[in-house]
Nucleic acid binder design. Sequence first.
DNA 1: TTGAAAGCGCTAACAA
DNA 2: TTGTTAGCGCTTTCAA
Lengths: 357, 357
Amino acid sequence: MPRKSEQKSKEYTIKDVAELAGVSTATVGRVLGGYGSASHEATQAVREAANKLHYIPNGIAQSMKKKTTKSVGLIVANICNPYFSSIARIVESVLVKKGYNIIICNTDEDGDREISYLKMLYEKRIDGLMIASALKESERKDSQFNMTYKESIPTIIIDREISNLKFPTVASDNFRGAYEATSHLIKLGHKRIGIIGSTISTFFRRVEGYRQAMLDHSLPFDTNLVFNKSYKNVKPGDVSEGIYATKNLLKYREYRPTAIFALNNLLTTGVLIAVNDLGLKIPDDVAVIGWDDFDLASLLNPPITVVKQSTYNIATIAISRLLQQIENPNTILNEEKKVILSTELVIRGSCGSNVTY
Amino acid sequence: MPRKSEQKSKEYTIKDVAELAGVSTATVGRVLGGYGSASHEATQAVREAANKLHYIPNGIAQSMKKKTTKSVGLIVANICNPYFSSIARIVESVLVKKGYNIIICNTDEDGDREISYLKMLYEKRIDGLMIASALKESERKDSQFNMTYKESIPTIIIDREISNLKFPTVASDNFRGAYEATSHLIKLGHKRIGIIGSTISTFFRRVEGYRQAMLDHSLPFDTNLVFNKSYKNVKPGDVSEGIYATKNLLKYREYRPTAIFALNNLLTTGVLIAVNDLGLKIPDDVAVIGWDDFDLASLLNPPITVVKQSTYNIATIAISRLLQQIENPNTILNEEKKVILSTELVIRGSCGSNVTY
DNA sequence: TTGAAAGCGCTAACAA
DNA sequence: TTGTTAGCGCTTTCAA
């Protein structure tokens, strides 16, 4: 079977190019790498040889020497969530212009998964890391924390407000956003408001906002209305999660909430499907507010009221700060370590304009 | 400023671990790499040392030796399109179990972008490549083609039915899917049917299906109804594209189509927004069929009829075949090089049940 | 302007 | 069971 090995086109190296061009490997490197200087003649010969062999430089070997891989990791909960895919898209488009590429990791908000991704990415020697789905505070023992995250590599956290974190952060004002949404519902007459966060890790700040709004309006904070568990029979990061949660929340007719606040797009969709399945009407039987705007929100009947994050700004600020750290490791971003962006309550029809009892 | 350099935690190497453990680097490799054999004592010492130093193996150096990077590239048009994000998600979840990670590239269906991504990925020495957004046939001169794609690396094409392609393919039956959708509209009485494909590269086969359906029903194939251009003022991969196309198609009252067939999710959303903006009613003023199902399709008013692809199957088959090629390079997948999956027409309300003139 | 050669951190063949 | 050592393909210092 000599055929086999002949078929397999050899990977040409800088050495092959050097030989063919009749120069040294150093010269090839200078020409192709664009550093140092080479005579016009040499330059020509090298280019020609490289073309002839369809030479593709070995980026691994380059990384080895230069100690930079031109790749950054992006850890998200689930790329199917429009919020994360938008972030990924924006981030990737600015990165690619600078020659970086992006490695995507989906954690489903699972701490163990995050840790193993981290390990993988650190082994890959990524130049930078963006985490949009960090360990939940509950899972994060400080000792463990310091062992899993490497401070020596440029890192930025999106959408997590973790106090003792050494990394810069850019996030929405989760507390305020939830506070406003909840207050809106309360003003409309709602007293029992369900909140569905499933396992999402920004859950806590948002629930705090919800809780504060309830308390400020002399309404009880009832943990039965707070849905933040994950269930074995339900895939996280799937609409079924929201459906399941909603059906649970609406199970008991007399105690059931008159409004539901869903903490991400996928959950919102799940809520809408469940409410529809149950034959209930929005907003008369149950009002709905979603977190994150989506293209079809205004086309639904009724249009869905949402807390809108400035996804574009979040992504843009995050990536520019990350690149700054990568390109200039001495920059200390201490002063403005944490950037918090305000959210906007987009009022559409899904909460009704008044509620009577 | 010696402070600075002290701060920066040194990257420990296998050599440091070896020293601390009092063994050779080879032994460290054997213990940590899990190959060869080492005494219990040595194993203990090495593990201890590695832990103490928080040693993280350098994957770059490993790749250098082993000639495998454990990463695969995924080229899509736009990760914000639910079709592509689902594919990415499924593919990533099977890859991660095998220790691979995934590098995502968004081309916006731009051939030049694809070529430069290809170059980047080949330099990175990816172990495998999955292309869900290949060069359009029109752009692909054979000579150029053979220079841009490397046959020596395992590659699989998703959703492209390119004839003389040397790579295995898994795709939906684009022709048949479009034929059925179009026929459905025709049976409902539509004679002027607009089709919006923008720049998407599977466009051609689908338009052929559309065309054939028209001809088979003795209806003219009018290129004015075929919208497949991209416009400077419109970002591809954004809802605005579909909005723009729809408004163009519906501009001239008397000649305007009574039905619109949108060739991906983002375009469908754009169509819905545009139709709504124009104050038209679906299905009475204009019927709509979308390509790709979506969670909210059945919740809209009216629910949207779609051509549903088996995304899960496409992704699963594609990645398993790719892994097969990666793990066993001698496997020739010739016999069943091309897998074509059938689509399903999911009839909901957006085409009405009858149309009168 | 050029080339020789060291070395990045690891694996693995070989010898002990 | 272990250690020595030769590379992997490149960049880059140092001399020429």
